[in-house]
Every structure is written in C-alpha cells, then in structure tokens.
Design a protein around this nucleic acid. Structure first.
Length: 346
DNA sequence: AAATGACACAACCGCCGATGA
DNA sequence: ATCATCGGCGGTTGTGTCATT
C-alpha cells in the first residue's frame, strides 16, 4: 500500500501534515533518519526528518511496519494458539500479548482477534467474553491448533531426519498431547448445532485428513538416552516431581495434570509432565511465550529466557529424538518446590 | 466483465499516565 | 502544584484486494 486518494499532497497542502498510507519515499526517509539518529523523540524526529507527519504517525509506522524485526506473513498455528491462550488470561491487553510473540505487533494481534476470532464468535452468535466461547476455544480450537503446530513441526523434523517414527491416525494410549477431541467442533455430538467454523478455512485441506475422528499420536519411540543430558535431566526432574503419577495431582500448591488445556479446571497453573521414560516428549507449558526452534534449544535454560520463550516447542532432532517442552506457571509465582525443582536443572 | 460484498490490515483517533519545565 | 508534551495503548475507521454473483 503506497498510494492513496486520502493523502493530501498538493502544493497548497505542503505545510499541512500528511495522512493516510505511507509512500515508499516516506518510508525511506523515516528509515534513514532512524538509522542515523535512532528511535524515540518522535515529534522531534517528525520535524527534523522532513516528513510531513505527526510524531505519532512516524512512531506507528516504524514500530508496526518498518522496524527490521517486524515479522511478516500469516500467524503460525503456534502463534494463534498463544494468542488464544494469552487473551483468555489477559483479555485485550494487546501490547502485553505482543510482548510474547516476537516480531508480532499489538496491532497485528488485535487485527487477528477482530477479524478471525470475533468473526467466528459472531457467526456462532456467541459473545467472546462469554464462558461458552471460552470453552469453545479451550476445548476445540486450542487443541486443534496444538495438533497442527505439532504436525507442522513433526513434518519439518521428518524432512530433516527421515528416521523419526511417527504414529499417525490412531488414538494412542500413551499420547501426551493435550486432550484433542475426537471430533472437530462441527461434528462433536454436543456441539453439532454449531455451524462449521471458518476459522481454519485456509487449513481445511491439511485438516481434512484428521476429520475422520482420529488423532495424531505423539507416541514416538525415541530413545531417551539419545537426548542431550540436560534434557534427560529435565525429564527426570518432572517425573520425580510427578512421582510418575500421570493423572492430575497437586504438588506444592501447583496443579499438575496431563492435559495442558484444561486450565479452567484450576486456579493455579498447570504443568505437563513427560508421560514416562518410554515417551520422551516432555510437554510442559507456560503462559506468555513464543515458539522457538531448535536453534534456541540449547540456550534457553535459564529462568528469564524460559519465561521469555515459554510455551515453547523445543525441538531437538538429535538422532531420532526430539522433545517438546511447554511449561505452565505464572511469573508471579516464582516460588515453591516446583520451581525449585525446575531450577535444579536450569 | 462489472458490480458487490467480505476480508485483512494499515493507519488514525482519543485517552491516559509519565515526565519535565 | 500545575501545565504542556510525549509516548503508549486500545478502539475504530478507511482502503486495497480478493472472491462471489
């Protein structure tokens, strides 16, 4: 978008502020000025750069569009999942939510929410603030996004490493994927009055293979011994914490269960623990987070970064192994044996 | 091919809190 | 203490694009 009838640019308007879409020349001018003088002092910037824009307009253009680390393109399933999760926690705190999606702006997230999520709510005649809608998101959309995210990463890893076994199209007895409904929302017996959602209309093809009621199983038969030592340690720690109890349990005030998306059940955070040593896919979850790839896997094991990169899928294609880790706990609850134990391996 | 509507997203607006004179 | 300015935030609007009729 580089031209607009709204932009006032006639000679008589030269002394007036321009509005509307930015031109390439304006973008270049702004970028050049910031590369020379840095960000901030936007009103001064607007005057000195020669741009006939308000400081606010310059700031917005830079932060939402021109800044080099702004990520372009569609939101990934992981990012969508994170937005749903964080919005359920923080509401319309777009800026706060955006802090946990590197490269994404509050404006972009806000637009996503309004154009995708609220649209679905309208179609279903549900208020997005209603418990019904929250339940729909939590029970269907989030697990499906999680499923897609894992499928995406799994296929990526499969391409990287052809030896990774994947058990598809079977409900695993050992699956530690969050409870994925066996029917999509429009097929769920108790929800079949709802119209088919368009939420994933761009992904219908990729979803269609799962719409027969089967789920992806994540019961990879990876050998835990092939995992790096600190990952094995993490798994052992979580197993120790959970005492290998793979149900819902309470540990030092923390509720730990094997379903990452039953959060409404708990007032306190949930944490996923690795199922058992046969299935070395630790899946712990932490709100407020981004998704990172293997490049980060060996570098995130300190508290700040765990927080920063929480709700992260760490993929470690080490031989035929890889590991998903999501942790769930709030920053404000940095106490208790759970975190002590967590710190033991950090 | 043209008209229409829906959609995505960039940009703007008003408000508010922080800061400094 | 007051006022002006600035930056940040959430809500809203405008516009280009694409799909449908």
């Amino acid at each position: 978008m580089s031209t607009s009838k709204r932009v006032s640019s006639s000679s008589e308007d030269d002394n007036e502020l321009r509005r509307g879409p930015w031109t390439l020349e304006e973008d270049n001018l702004l970028s050049q000025y910031i590369s020379n003088h840095g960000e901030g002092r936007w009103n001064l910037l607007a005057k000195r750069s020669g741009l006939k824009r308000t400081g606010k307009s310059c700031r917005l253009r830079w932060l939402n569009y021109l800044k080099p680390d702004v990520k372009r393109g569609n939101l990934t399933a992981e990012e969508q999942l994170l937005i749903l999760e964080l919005h359920s926690k923080w509401g319309n705190r777009w800026s706060k939510i955006a802090q946990h999606l590197p490269g994404r702006t509050d404006n972009e997230i806000k637009n996503y929410w309004r154009t995708r999520i609220q649209k679905q709510a309208r179609h279903l005649k549900i208020d997005t603030d209603s418990r019904e809608f929250q339940e729909l998101v939590r029970r269907f959309w989030m697990p499906r996004l999680l499923q897609k995210a894992k499928a995406t990463y799994s296929s990526a890893i499969s391409v990287q490493n052809q030896t990774i076994p994947m058990a598809l199209n079977g409900v695993s007895q050992h699956s530690n994927v969050g409870t994925i409904p066996s029917h999509p929302p429009w097929q769920e017996p108790c929800m079949n009055e709802a119209a088919p959602t368009n939420m994933d209309q761009n992904d219908q093809n990729s979803d269609s293979e799962h719409n027969n009621g089967s789920c992806i199983s994540f019961s990879e038969s990876a050998n835990i011994q092939k995992l790096p030592q600190h990952f094995r340690h993490a798994i052992n720690q979580f197993n120790a914490i959970s005492n290998n109890d793979f149900g819902t349990f309470t540990y030092d005030g923390y509720h730990v269960n094997n379903n990452a998306y039953e959060m409404d059940t708990f007032k306190t955070p949930t944490a996923r623990v690795v199922e058992d040593m046969q299935y070395p896919i630790g899946d712990c979850q932490m709100p407020g987070s981004s998704w990172v790839n293997n490049d980060f896997a060996c570098n995130v094991w300190n508290m700040d970064e765990l927080w920063q990169f929480s709700n992260t899928i760490l993929i470690n294609p080490d031989g035929d192994c890889f590991l998903y880790i999501c942790l769930v706990f709030p920053l404000e609850q940095e106490s208790g044996l759970f975190l002590q134990a967590l710190n033991n391996f950090i």
